[in-house]
């Protein structure tokens, strides 16, 4: 049986509530898509039921034949498609078909990162301890997706709501990030009623 990168941390992360609710969502299907032709990007979007993001540092979400799918902007011709576990092979086939003869690539990178959902009134404060990106709701509204450093670890940060963020972190760095999160939460746990 496959063990998720943060399986050993489940209890300690759960103990951070109510200051911060932390939950891992492991094994999600992730595909790195490189394509620059607008027609190919539109075709891949309609195949998944989600419009690919056109604005830098944003993500889009939609629902189609693979259920809920998110597409994260990683670069001007680079996207990350994220879906439920065990769909990577079929999504890869569909995206390659949609890409057709256009220049580009679709690569399964599901094992590269694990997903951590952070939720709570202090989520932006906790992240600000180790992240230099402006996380004020006016600068980082829901729909923001940035690649940056959190406590010197490369992450993809999705802002999914006023008090809710999704962090994608490399599997080998996940335990370090969990340890850092536990430490950064200490002062908010003390203040919680």
């Amino acid at each position: 049986m496959t063990v998720s990168p943060l399986a050993a941390w489940r209890g300690r992360l759960a103990a951070l509530a109510p200051a911060l609710a932390v939950a891992e969502r492991p094994f999600r299907s992730q595909l790195t898509v490189r394509a620059s032709e607008p027609s190919a990007i539109a075709a891949m979007g309609s195949a998944l039921g989600v419009v690919f993001p056109s604005v830098p540092c944003t993500f889009t979400a939609g629902s189609g034949q693979f259920g809920d799918v998110e597409v994260l902007w990683l670069g001007p011709d680079e996207f990350l498609v994220v879906a439920a576990p065990d769909l990577q092979v079929s999504i890869e086939e569909v995206l390659r078909g949609a890409l057709g003869s256009s220049r580009g690539s679709v690569v399964d990178t599901s094992a590269q990162r694990t997903t951590v959902i952070l939720e709570g009134p202090h989520v932006r404060d906790v992240l600000a301890h180790g992240c230099s990106v402006d996380l004020h709701p006016s600068a980082a509204p829901a729909g923001t997706c940035v690649q940056t450093l959190l406590a010197r670890t490369g992450i993809i940060l999705q802002v999914t709501g006023p008090d809710r963020c999704t962090v994608l972190v490399r599997s080998s760095f996940a335990e370090y990030l969990a340890a850092w999160l536990s430490d950064a939460c200490v002062e908010y746990q003390a203040a919680a009623p």
Partner: peptide
């Protein structure tokens, strides 16, 4: 592309 970011990035 991404706007102002810290030099360490």
């Amino acid at each position: 592309w991404c706007g102002p970011r810290e030099e360490a990035e």
